[in-house]
Amino acid sequence: MWKWLHPYAKAEKSYALSGKLMPWFLAVALPTFVVGIIWGLAFAPADYQQGDSFRIIYIHVPAAMMAMGAYSTMAIAAFIGLVWQIRLAEMTVAATAPIGAVYTFIALFTGAAWGKPMWGAWWVWDARLTSELILLFVYLGIIALYNAFSDKVLAGRAASILTLVGVINLPIIHFSVVWWNTLHQGATITKFDQPSMATDMLVPLLIMIVSFAAFLGFMVLYRFRNEILQRESHRPWVIALVQQSSSSVNKRG
């Protein structure tokens, strides 16, 4: 009897806890997004070199940062999961990977869109873009590995190992790409980050970063909860939950 109670309470508890936290993350993410995007797109001054097209950094930079942030989250969760054998942490890895991949894709896409007016081509082998492309490959590899296992406990563990291998490798990849780039590319305007940014450009950027980070947290919790429900779908508490919510829908309908 006890051995059933113990992990069951844990998953149920973290389900409830993440449910309580979720609205707070959303409460931060939405207003900051509205304020940040309007400020950044409409009120921040135009760049003297790049004109209005620089404004894409208000999407690109936060997305790129959170692409890394999602990976760090995964790496920490993977480490906890493997060392202390905590299945919930391995679920977090699996839940975060697709979000990280989407953020990376947004960063890549906005980077390319920025490149079109700047460099005259959709794709230039810029160090930062190349690193992001490789990061996307790594994300896709982790997601593919996770989906390939039919036993999701093993899948979570395999994905966690690969995440940790990646976390050692990613800095090396980044470093090698930057070096390779300086050798092959020469002098192009590759920098998104100006040496010093005017305050009225920087503040909306910071707001957007906060917004993207909060939204990342919200999405991670959301997918984490789904993951729990899926894995535990035969447990009594999930069944009770489903019955409860369907009956409340019926009442409303």
Binding site: I134, V138, G141, L162, I173, S176
Partner: peptide, 10 residues
Amino acid sequence: SLIMLPLSIP
């Protein structure tokens, strides 16, 4: 290949 090739880029 999907897993290994990106890691061997450096």
